[in-house]
Amino acid sequence: MIYYIEIVFIVCLCCACTLFKKGIAWTKVFAILIFGATWLVLALRGSSVGADTQSYINYFWMIDEMSIPDLIGKINSPNRELMDVGFAIYVKVLSFLTNSPQIMLAISGGFYLYVVYIFAKYNKLVNPIYVLWYICLAPYLTAFNLVRQCVALGFCLLSWMKYNENKRKAYFLWIIAVLFHISAVVWAITFVAKKIKPSRKLFVAVFGLLVVLFFWGGKIIYYVLSFFPVYQYRYGQNGVYSDMTTQANGVVFLWIIIVLCAALVAFKTNWGQCLDSLKFEKIVYSLIAIAFFMLGNRIGGVQRIAVYFQPFWVPLLCDFGKMYEKKVELLYTIAVTVCAVAFFFLQIQSDQYSPYVFFWNNI
């Protein structure tokens, strides 16, 4: 656990330094320090840290031993013997360059964390205190488990940031994400959301739809899974992973805060004069994440959909704080930071993350 505490300490130290050292150069220094700390803890973890780490290590060895014709044959097999095509090809290419699965974990984690940094910068949230929120509230710890989905999430976030600049490139990045993890198809929601004019009535409608999803989403999801035999086998009503539901614990309190922030931002914003075209999207995606996390308490695997939209929690929380005067915003920032760190420490109590073991101790 000490290594997770060190990450929080380094970020807090960088936050304190920003009071004395300002400017673009120092911002880059703080970013490098924080990125280095978070990446090293993620990249050097042993096979016992993270629920699926050992599975990905075994997958690397399996792909490494396959010939190209065998790999193509299994990719095209009707029962999908391999994971998604993009990830299988990615691992095969890496196996030509290295015989260490740890390199795969390090590169995958590095790519994901770098995209999260770009995402924070895109939302003008490069202050270390906001980066701490990303570490504690956004799926940093999820990257210890869902390696290929976090790579897919990285491509999805890049797609979202590139959409207004180059739609074709955005669609291309999304397709890559789907090739890495089929669940990334849900990112198509973001393309629809960008074409909708925001309003308070629309917020109420979206909130209503998400309530319906929570109560009756199970039937819809099981129906959709019936068209995908492999995933029906895994996550269907009697699937292999149907009992892999999430446990809310103290997280419900966090969900309530985010829902309240979303509602207040939605109703206090004059959407007719709002110049931030992405503000409404942050609200919608944050609520989508909560809806699927709540649904994940009853249906195994559904929480994977929520992971795609969880990074939008931080920009939403920041938008809420900026609605008030400086003194109130400062108190709010302190309160959120304390809650975020508490949430982080609650998470690392899980045997998925603790005790932390370096990979060389598993050899």
Results as ranks from 00 to 15, higher is better:
residue 105 L to C: 08
residue 238 N to D: 10
residue 260 L to S: 03
residue 354 S to E: 13
residue 99 N to L: 03
residue 248 A to Q: 11
residue 84 D to Y: 02
residue 224 V to W: 15
residue 31 A to Q: 10
residue 25 A to Q: 13
residue 61 W to C: 00
residue 113 L to N: 04
residue 150 C to S: 10
residue 38 T to I: 10
residue 177 A to E: 04
residue 197 K to Y: 08
residue 40 L to F: 11
residue 138 A to T: 07
residue 61 W to A: 01
residue 304 R to V: 03
residue 292 F to A: 04
residue 45 R to I: 13
residue 62 M to R: 13
residue 89 I to H: 00
residue 251 V to W: 10
residue 122 Y to W: 15
residue 232 Q to G: 05
residue 250 G to Q: 10
residue 333 T to A: 11
residue 35 F to R: 02
residue 225 L to V: 08
residue 2 I to C: 06
residue 181 H to E: 02
residue 211 V to D: 00
residue 33 L to E: 09
residue 139 P to F: 01
residue 135 I to F: 08
residue 242 S to C: 11
residue 310 Q to Y: 02
residue 333 T to D: 11
residue 52 D to A: 05
residue 3 Y to W: 09
residue 285 Y to Q: 00
residue 162 K to D: 13
residue 325 E to R: 10
residue 92 K to H: 06
residue 40 L to A: 14
residue 266 A to F: 08
residue 12 C to P: 04
residue 4 Y to A: 07
residue 231 Y to A: 02
residue 179 L to P: 00
residue 358 F to K: 07
residue 174 W to A: 00
residue 292 F to H: 07
residue 129 I to L: 15
residue 221 I to R: 00
residue 27 T to S: 14
residue 172 F to H: 02
residue 83 M to T: 11
residue 40 L to Q: 03
residue 69 P to V: 10
residue 161 M to P: 01
residue 243 D to G: 06
residue 86 G to N: 09
residue 39 W to S: 01
residue 349 Q to W: 12
residue 273 Q to N: 12
residue 44 L to K: 04
residue 175 I to S: 10
